[in-house]
Amino acid sequence: MDALIQSLIQGVLLGGLYAAIGIGMSLIFGIVKLTNLAHGDFLVLGSYISLVVTSTLGISPFLSLIIVVPVMFCIGFVVQNTMLNKVLSKGAEPTLMITFGLSIVIQNLLLYFFTADARNLHSSITLKSITISDGIRIPVIYLISCVVGVVVILILGAYFKKTYQGKAIMAAADDLEVAQLMGVNIKNIYGLAMGISIATAAIAGVMVGMIYNFYPTSGSSYLVIAFAVVVIGGMGSTYGTLVAGLLFGLAQVLGAHFFGAQAQLLTGYIVLLVMLIFRPQGLFSK
């Protein structure tokens, strides 16, 4: 029983992290209408940049966010403005293939500079946990990452509702032509959106790096999570992403609980495939 409760708690906490992994992808799909197949690789790139920052400056991974987030934002902005914006008008395939190409390039660059060895981000907090009862312990880092995920989503939600810039982005997502007529510079808006998307991925990357080992090729497993969260939550829905993260986290953890650790991956894949086949528009949209 304790093991099940432990799994449930872990699933819920993972949910917040999963939402943070998926929110950027959801944003970019909702606003720019493109699928970023390199989303997971950008996330892992964030982990590696944090690794470099923490080891050279000797600061905690949390502090490294001050550097990682702006750097990743710039990378996202530049990628969107120099590459993706140029082929947006040519349909879905070119952007799909460019992001796929980026994924290969990032993976192999990381492989080249960091080798295939397992890495992780050290912090004094990573080993601590809160004991609730004999069998139930909550690792503090899970709790923190969940809180960070929720906060990221709440901030984004507020940004799109309250700020002028956020509203402009949403306007562009709703009706491109009207937004353009209102004087919104679409190309810059898209760059901004991609910057935000990649920055959130980087935040997730730092959290993930403190919980799990990462490798240059880890990106694809995070892409699966991001994609699952986006598909379950409904493309472009900010709060849907949060609920979807919870559901997917629970599904995976329960899959592992009942069918063994190997099943965690497989449960994830199957949930995603079933969603894609039967409800690609997401659980929450009509």
């Binding site: 460019i98 390039v105 192999n108 080249y112």
Partner: peptide, 18 residues
């Protein structure tokens, strides 16, 4: 040259698409 081939192939593919 190890992983470099994939990096170069990736860059070539992106440049060709662009």
């Amino acid at each position: 040259f190890g992983g470099i081939s994939m990096i170069i192939l990736g860059i070539i593919a992106i440049l060709v698409i662009l």
